[in-house]
Design a protein around this nucleic acid. Structure first.
Length: 826
DNA sequence: AGCACGCCGACT
DNA sequence: GTCGGCGTGCTC
């Protein structure tokens, strides 16, 4: 019966496991017989890596090929009974690691909620073999040894409580040497279900009669308890169920009074597991009609989706793109599919959420950076089971384990915040979403008023479908744009002008009409700093090649690159003078001068410094919506995801700061930004006005913005991109080399470039030192590669980069040079 | 990412 | 003479 047949599948013996680390390749563990028929890809396993470090890894593959080069260690445990993700996630992670040149472990690290990752905790075990003779121990060692003898094991935190927390490690070290104890690592499950105590009426009063009996015969004693009981009965009637905390806070009773009722067996306490994500009724209400223009666009999209996986919806600001999204989402829902709606984090405002909740209620879940780890685990499960139908989230929501994804919407698709900059994986959420969708045969809708040139190119190539909305909703005109030439204008103190007379006049008029004003200030290059009045010296960071930003609120200097905080400078390091001034050209300074000039207007500031936490942001938006603020000054935040009905005037205070960057995307960014900003002006009722202050009024971008002419802009920009060999006509890869010695990075980068030259010499730019050439005491060199659009060449180049990086690390002088590839840098 | 091993400087 | 710094390499 059980003889082995020649074609019988061999038993699965090994598991390729992903570990949340930047390992160069995936590792393999052996599955002990008792786990072999339970293990499945996507389940977490407990494994030991190295001496005794434990990790929760994820099984990627099961196989029976014994590795030749090493003897795999055994998997200790299966941590899940069912996989925590779908097969698509593993494929998605693999693609991302390959495409963005990082390890699958790094992708896993970014993808999984922290509580799935489990941290290991060091445990001290008593070594029975050492015996109980502690005479050779000093006082502190003795204390720990005694405790260990009794408890047999201690965690580090417990040892810290036993001793003076400052020096537990040396003591543990000595105990280890004297063999009194052993260490072991234990995996700690950090996800905790949320429990809440509910209050119930004791079953002995389960009929009205018995209850009435109890109330009628209440003794004169304990009137407070009677009061509490009545409060309970009221709450129970109105809310259905009563939690302990709600009862106590609403009745104002004390915990002791409740305890009294419980001990008399009148009320009962019961602990129940509850859901952290409050659920709303899950009904769909689509109760609006589309304009003819919207209907046409919707039909176009539906038509194109029959042939194309990705469509672009280009619609001018307030053309009602969201209504089309809602229609498509509803359609996906009707087909039993899930929807991922991605937008830039900063645009994920209460206003946007409220608007979608109106239509989809409890079908929508939100995923953003303010979520805590426990909430993320619960959301993960809801998405995996398919219970959550629509996910509204930022970049990282592409990692959620969709069961049956039917539609992905990437709103504000051009936004650069979809690209993750710092820790690997340096992925673009929009592009990753397109790939993810392909795994589910789902459709992707990219939406923007000012599409990225990459997406526009894909439309022109026929790869993406297109629908356009060229007029604003409800027949509002596009705002009128005025260019204010500030050349020659100077403030009394000779500093650059903040408010031109023209803008001041426009503000006055707008305020007179009881309308609101938004003033936009690009933050870059406008951070407050300290400067010596005698010699112009500016304090710099000790570890980075940047000047320090002055934070007025905390009266501190801060390095925005490494985060180091310094006290304000009093003595100039260059000339010894004591004459320091704070230059603050930021929104703060603008706010000050507005208050001065418009003393009766209510002015508020919205930037990272003024907004602490999401709630302050939402609160400020509400105040502005309710017209309790007249003038709102801010950075990017004021233009994303917000619609205000009474804004009549938008001022762009310094367009030169937007247009003056030395980077090939300046024009694209400038156009996008100004178009987005001006879109805030003129909603209900009349046409809005936008005033752009510049010293370069003939800049071509301004003309396109003035005409709201995306297509002409795109055409012009495309031809210059083509001419200079930039995306979308090429693919970029940026390599950063970092090392603590300037000469070493330089040599390494040059060496690397020299090795690349035979195959890719024509495409290299640099190596060169970036503008900020030292961060955290590491010198930096950048090498840019501009590849023609050719998938084979791209792959070849990536392979070559990985090979040469390994090769570089074999050269003794370059061993510790860090090489970071950035694919499709922004 | 940890962690151990190993080779050079500032102390008992 | 030793303690300890961190540079380097390895972990299935």
């Amino acid at each position: 019966m059980n003889e082995s047949l020649p074609f019988e599948p061999s038993p699965v013996l090994f598991a390729e496991v992903l570990i949340p680390l930047a390992l160069p390749r995936n590792f393999t563990w052996a599955l002990p017989p008792e786990l072999q028929d339970k293990a499945m890809p996507g389940m977490r396993v407990e494994v030991v890596l190295g001496r005794n470090k434990k990790y929760a890894g994820i099984i990627k593959k099961l196989h029976d090929k014994k590795p030749a080069a090493f003897d795999p260690k055994p998997v200790l445990n299966l941590l899940d009974e069912t996989p925590i993700l779908h097969a698509q996630q593993l494929l998605f992670w693999e693609w991302m690691a390959h495409y963005y040149l990082c390890s699958e472990g790094e992708v896993m690290q970014a993808a999984l909620p922290t509580h799935f990752k489990l941290s290991s905790e060091t445990i001290l075990l008593f070594n029975d073999a050492a015996g109980e003779d502690f005479s050779h121990l000093d006082d502190e060692e003795f204390v720990v040894a005694e405790a260990l003898l009794i408890k047999k094991e201690l965690r580090i935190t417990e040892v810290q409580q036993l001793l003076d927390a400052s020096h537990v490690y040396p003591v543990i070290q000595r105990l280890l040497e004297k063999k009194v104890c052993l260490v072991w690592e234990e995996l700690k499950q950090t996800y905790k279900e949320k429990k809440e105590t509910f209050i119930l009426l004791h079953p002995q009063y389960n009929t009205d009669e018995k209850l009435a009996d109890l109330l009628n015969n209440w003794t004169a004693k304990a009137p407070k308890q009677l009061e509490l009981l009545l409060a309970y009965l009221h709450l129970e009637k109105t809310e259905g169920e009563v939690t302990k905390s709600a009862l106590l806070s609403k009745s104002g009773a004390s915990a002791d009074q409740l305890k009294g009722l419980v001990s008399k067996a009148i009320l009962l306490e019961e602990k129940r597991t509850v859901d952290r994500l409050k659920s709303l009724p899950a009904n769909v209400s689509i109760n609006f009609t589309l304009t003819p223009a919207q209907e046409t666009a919707l039909a176009q999209l539906q038509d194109q989706f029959s042939q194309k996986a990705v469509c672009l919806l280009q619609g001018v600001t307030s053309s009602g793109k969201t209504l089309l999204y809602i229609r498509l989402m509803e359609e996906a829902l009707r087909n039993g599919k899930q929807v991922l709606y991605m937008l830039p984090e900063i645009a994920l405002t209460a206003q946007v959420i409220r608007r979608l909740r109106e239509h989809f209620g409890g079908h929508i879940v939100i995923y953003h950076s303010k979520f805590n780890a426990n909430e993320r685990v619960e959301l993960w499960h809801k998405v995996k089971s398919g219970e959550a139908k629509i996910v509204l989230g930022a970049r990282s929501s592409v990692f959620l384990p969709f069961r049956d994804l039917g539609l992905v919407i990437v709103d504000e698709e051009h936004d650069s915040s979809f690209k993750q900059q710092d820790p690997a994986p340096r992925y673009n959420g929009r592009d990753a979403a397109v790939f993810l969708a392909s795994l589910y045969q789902a459709k992707v809708l990219l939406g923007s008023a000012t599409p990225s040139l990459e997406s526009w190119y894909n439309v022109k190539q026929g790869k993406y479908g297109l629908a356009q909305l060229t007029e604003r909703y409800a027949g509002i005109d596009m705002p009128q744009i005025g260019i204010v030439d500030t050349t020659g204008l100077r403030q009394a103190d000779k500093s650059r002008v903040i408010l031109s007379p023209a803008l001041e006049e426009a503000i006055t008029q707008t305020l007179q009409k009881n309308k609101q004003v938004i003033l936009f200030q690009n933050r870059r290059g406008y951070s407050p700093y300290q400067v010596c009045q005698s010699c112009g010296w500016i304090p710099h960071c000790k570890h980075c090649d940047v000047s320090l930003t002055f934070h007025k609120l905390h009266n501190k200097l801060v390095c925005h690159y490494c985060g180091t905080i310094y006290p304000p400078v009093v003595i100039c390091e260059a000339c010894g003078n004591h004459d320091f001034q704070q230059q603050n050209f930021g929104t703060e300074r603008i706010e000050e001068s507005l208050v001065e000039r418009f003393p009766h207007a209510k002015v508020a500031r919205m930037d990272i410094d003024a907004i602490k936490g999401k709630h302050a942001h939402d609160a400020l938006i509400q105040l502005f919506e309710q017209q309790r603020i007249d003038i709102l000054v801010g950075t990017q935040m004021v233009v994303k995801g917000l619609d205000f009905d009474h804004v009549q005037l938008v001022g762009i205070l310094d367009a030169d700061a937007i247009m003056g960057f030395a980077d090939f995307r300046v024009n694209e960014r400038a156009f996008q930004l100004m178009e987005q900003v001006s879109g805030r002006s003129g909603r209900k009722g009349e046409q809005g006005l936008v005033l752009v202050q510049t010293r370069n009024p003939r800049h071509p971008v301004l003309a396109w913005v003035k005409a709201h002419d995306f297509e002409t802009f795109a055409q012009a920009e495309m031809s210059s991109r083509q001419q200079f060999g930039y995306p979308p006509f090429t693919r970029l890869i940026q390599l950063s080399f970092k090392h603590k010695t300037a000469d070493v990075v330089q040599a390494a980068a040059r060496q690397f470039a020299a090795w690349m030259t035979p195959n890719f010499g024509a495409y290299l730019v640099g190596p060169a030192a970036p503008v900020v050439n030292r961060v955290r005491n590491q010198y930096i060199m950048d090498l840019l590669i501009k590849l023609p659009r050719d998938l084979h060449l791209l792959q070849q180049c990536k392979d070559q980069i990985q090979l040469l990086t390994a090769h570089l690390h074999q050269q003794p002088p370059f061993k510790s040079v860090i090489v970071t590839p950035d694919i499709d840098p922004i």
